[in-house]
């Protein structure tokens, strides 16, 4: 079974890659690539249903075992079922479903974004308590310079700070970002190759 799954993964991966690069030479590869992508998208859709079932199963289990936080799990399952049933009966375009999205989901995510701002500020304050090193000090100084350089201050702009912040962010910060992204790209390339050739097998339970 393991050999078959590795064979399918390698073949699909190579077909997709060939579809990107060798379609001029073998036009049929474009069609093969489209078909494989269609199957992948369909499977992703099915996986969404399985994921929702998993979510319900985990939280139902917590309620059944009366685990800590079980009340929230019960609320989650009830809300999910009500929304699902209403969505199926009324269809997503119905005014009630729009009210659920506009009145509950969007405000909740907005509130989380609000909390996020506080969390980020709190993390920056705690950074030097957690570790005092050169990198942490540079990290905090950069954040402060960029904030001060872009903020509207009541007494007007601090002379030269705006220009310095722009230079700092466009030369040093951007250079660092590119370095990190190149590293991430290299890591993704080698990880992808390991999966493509079956060295890593996050499938098949083996």
């Amino acid at each position: 079974m393991r050999v078959i799954t590795v064979f399918i993964v390698t073949l699909s991966g190579l077909a997709i890659l060939s579809g990107y690069f060798l379609t001029d030479l073998f036009p049929v590869l474009a069609e093969v690539q489209t078909q494989i992508l269609n199957v992948a998208i369909t499977l992703a859709g099915v996986a969404m249903l399985v994921g929702i079932f998993n979510l319900v199963s985990v939280h139902t289990d917590k309620v059944r075992r009366s685990q800590k936080g079980g009340v929230y799990s019960a609320l989650l399952v009830i809300s999910l079922l009500i929304t699902l049933v209403l969505g199926i009966i009324l269809r997503p375009g119905h005014v009630a479903m729009q009210a659920v999205v506009n009145g509950i989901i969007i405000p909740t995510e907005s509130a989380l974004m609000g909390i996020l701002t506080i969390s980020l500020l709190y993390a920056a304050i705690r950074l030097l308590r957690r570790r005092v090193d050169v990198m942490s000090i540079i990290f905090l100084l950069t954040a402060a310079i960029i904030l001060f350089g872009s903020a509207t201050l009541p007494f007007g702009d601090i002379p030269l700070l705006g220009d310095f912040a722009r230079w700092w962010s466009q030369v040093w910060a951007l250079g660092g970002m590119r370095g990190i992204l190149i590293g991430v790209g290299l890591g993704a390339l080698t990880t992808g190759l390991r999966v493509l050739f079956g060295a890593d097998r996050p499938y098949g339970g083996s």
Partner: peptide, 14 residues
């Protein structure tokens, strides 16, 4: 992500 969730189950089982 649901696909990642499925693979995480498979991976843990492995």
């Amino acid at each position: 992500d649901p696909l990642l969730g499925l693979l995480s189950q498979d991976t843990i089982q492995a």
